[in-house]
Design a protein around this nucleic acid. Structure first.
Lengths: 354, 354
DNA sequence: CGTTAGCACTCTCATGGGGAGACTGCTAGG
DNA sequence: CCTAGCAGTCTCCCCATGAGAGTGCTAACG
């Protein structure tokens, strides 16, 4: 099994044609069809020889003896690494994305939904967005709102525009003015840090202040502990599952079922997507790499998004390995950038106004 | 076609047996199987005569000439109205529901998800919960949190525990202290009214105060308009779609697809569920009544939930018409009551604490 | 007159053979 | 090294066949 270096230009040309044809047709590709529209001027018999080699080297396989051939995961990897020509996203689609994803008056949860929908709509695959674990986000503001007697609504706003609400209970009733003071104090002192860091500082503060019995400070710490100690489970927004149902690889119910169940298991989905968080480019997991389902040949194209250096989550698409990478990779790339920009604009860029 | 009055006790007994058998088996029911386990001591031939009558009257139908018979929507209606014996929910399940749905520290969005999941899990059908349109809810508190320059996060808390966030932009920067004052003012003056009412009052206020140029009041009105004017689209939480995939009525992909697409169309789903909001009991839409999909014989069992008299939303299950109504109707009923109670407890009952 | 046994009829579904079609692998010749 | 040709193989569709299940009808029975 030689690496790509051992493939002659002709071999590569033929493999590429098989892949492109298969992506379009979803069916095994015959030597004859390659001979027809690859402009090599070779006969089907010659192509057959080459294809037999490519099979031996692990790039192609036949579903059964007398069928055409289908690309393997290795073939797709090679294709993506050094054969494909990424097609720049059409201006219409870029604008379409930017129009829908502009930061601003909408809240970040809604933006996540929109991003997922755009991914699905423009790729005809399933769109997936992993939202940040709230514990990893940077605090922008915190506010306590009394709602009834001992119950207080705690609103945590992250710098990236995410908002988390939780109801907490206190031992004794806290007057409204004190809640305002506590909110201000915490916002001023903790803004700019992640919840994780804040939690650690709180522990230290508790130890230090244990001797003193400053009532207000004790309460502040109590509320902060209850409100800012986020469990930090990242969420995941999936859109367009029905897109896959028309595809020929999902033509029997058992497979559809496994697919639906795979998408219902959010935790595993997050785990798979987050394998793409390292590095900033688009990553592609193909076939077995992406252990979404055991038998279905699925792939994931995903990229991290975030604020500047700090990655917040991942976004991407999931679909059968046979997908239009030349379009989808630029799409995912662009969406990652646009989403990052939208999040940055939500709360950051407020110096200028149109 | 006689109404139920014309059915003799024997006819009813036989119809009931056909329905119960079909619910279990999912297959057309033969006269022979009825003869066997209905304790009427009649032969299959006699049963056949009765079943032919029942078909003529619109309660049964045959998929093809030489098959057994299947209940029609009319049969299910009759069954539910006057033949079935609702089975009280087992204590284990009641407790299970109550344990998971207790109001308290969780926020209402999470409760909705839990309710939907419980419905699905305990019925083996799809669980659906329609969340209140925020515009219809009663205001508990409103708070404006500055997040950056001209951008302000507006948090609206409803009396039933729902929280809505939106980012609004203002013409000029508003100092933090003023935001606090405005929040207090609005909460004190508007709490207890629905957002719809508040919106109307705001319009009146604007007209009245147009002459005066009280800067603070103008700002208050501006913020209230931007923050409290909710678009008011009810949400819908669906859980357990994959439950249906094992059922025999969804044995081909085309149907699965139509089903998945039907569940993806949230707006239609809300419309169908909300047809059950009138009256306070459990309502059942069967077959054509529930125009979820054109060809699939689906039913909806749903009930409104809410705070006291005021209905907030609906909750229920969706599945093939052939479902275990004797269990599912009590289940939906109990879940509606438990959810209402949980919402009431979230913010209301704070006088006692365990 | 209601009930039942018996029987012919109908329709579905699983099974298996046959043949067309599509590709491949191999071999011999250019 | 390439190609034409051909035999071999595998899938898929079609059709006939037959078993099985269930009905409708009729005639007989209490």
């Amino acid at each position: 099994m030689p690496d790509q270096g051992n493939l002659s230009p002709r071999d590569r040309e033929i493999l590429k044609d098989v892949i492109l044809t298969h992506i379009l047709s979803a069916e095994p590709v015959s030597s004859r069809s390659v001979a027809k529209h690859a402009k090599l001027g070779l006969s089907a018999a010659t192509i057959r020889n080459v294809m037999a080699d490519l099979e031996e080297w692990g790039y192609l396989m036949q579903p059964h003896t007398s069928a055409g051939r289908v690309p393997t995961a290795a073939a797709y990897h090679l294709f993506i690494r050094s054969m494909m020509e990424a097609r720049a996203l059409p201006v219409r689609e870029r604008r379409y994305i930017e129009d829908h994803l502009k930061g601003g008056s909408t809240d970040s949860d809604e933006i996540m939904g929109t991003a997922s929908h755009l991914l699905s709509e423009l790729s005809s695959q399933v769109g997936v967005v992993v939202t940040p674990a709230i514990g990893e986000t940077v605090l922008k503001a915190v506010e306590f709102i009394p709602v009834s007697g001992h119950k207080i609504l705690c609103v945590v706003v992250s710098a990236s525009g995410f908002v988390d609400n939780k109801v907490i209970e206190t031992e004794e009733e806290v007057p409204r003015e004190e809640l305002v003071r506590i909110s201000n104090y915490l916002t001023e002192n903790f803004a700019g840090h992640t919840l994780r860091e804040i939690r650690e500082r709180l522990v230290r503060m508790m130890v230090e202040e244990k001797a003193q019995v400053d009532r207000v400070l004790a309460r502040t710490i109590e509320l902060a502990r209850a409100g800012l100690t986020a469990d930090g489970v990242p969420g995941v927004v999936v859109d367009g599952t029905s897109m896959l149902l028309g595809k020929p690889e999902l033509s029997d119910v058992a497979r559809v079922r496994r697919m639906i169940e795979a998408f219902a298991d959010k935790e595993r989905l997050v785990r798979i997507l987050n394998r793409c968080i390292q590095g900033d480019g688009v990553r592609v997991l193909i076939g077995e790499d992406c252990e979404l389902t055991s038998d279905l040949e699925f792939s994931v194209v995903a990229t991290p998004y975030g604020l500047g250096e700090r990655p917040l989550g991942t976004l991407g698409i999931v679909g059968p390995s046979r997908m239009d990478y030349e379009k989808i990779i630029p799409l995912v790339h662009f969406l990652g950038e646009t989403l990052s920009r939208a999040l940055a604009e939500t709360f950051a860029g407020d110096s200028e106004r149109r």
